[in-house]
């Protein structure tokens, strides 16, 4: 890894690329409803930006940009966001993960929000939950597998 820090081309090029990779990652997460993609694929792409950073600039730099504690916390947060959406629907009166209850229904309605607006919101939130978890877990996996051989 040390040698890579001398590679000017690599450093400059990856610095240019990383923002684009991140934008593409978010695009893939958000665009999952319309075309191929979704939380998982987008999450991996986002993570690849961080891993590239770690490979080129070293682990310490990566730990500065994405502190391991924060990354691990976010991994748990992603699952919480997902299940939280489900629990929210449960509390709002529907079954678990019944997105039509995300926006509380009008009084006395048997089935709320049949137009699908609430469903879309649910799916986007859920996809972001997946994306956050996948991205941060992949960064963690990279961090852990490159942990020093002997402590």
């Amino acid at each position: 890894m040390k040698n890579m820090e001398d590679q000017v081309v690599l450093r400059v090029f990856s610095k240019i690329m990383i923002p684009f990779i991140i934008i593409f990652g978010f695009y893939v997460i958000t665009h999952g409803e319309l075309g191929p993609g979704g939380g998982f694929q987008g999450g991996v792409i986002l993570a690849s930006a961080f891993i590239l950073y770690g490979l080129v600039f070293g682990k310490d730099q990566l730990a500065e940009a994405a502190p391991p504690r924060v990354v691990e916390g976010l991994a748990a947060f992603g699952v919480l966001l997902y299940s939280g959406v489900g629990a929210w629907c449960l509390l709002a009166g529907g079954n678990f993960l019944d997105y039509s209850y995300i926006i509380p229904p009008a009084e006395g309605a048997v089935i709320p929000h049949l137009d699908g607006g609430a469903e879309i919101w649910g799916m986007i939130l859920v996809e972001y939950g997946v994306g956050i978890t996948v991205c941060t877990v992949m960064i963690t996996v990279y961090n852990m597998i490159t942990e020093e051989a002997e402590a």
């Binding site: 691990e72 916390g73 748990a76 699952v79 919480l80 299940s83 489900g86 629990a87 079954n95 678990f96």
Partner: peptide, 18 residues
């Protein structure tokens, strides 16, 4: 909701344990 909570509760709680 108990059937759902039987599984969802340990899941969410497990994540919160972190």
């Amino acid at each position: 909701s108990i059937p759902a909570l039987m599984v969802v509760l340990p899941l969410m709680a497990g994540v919160i344990t972190v």
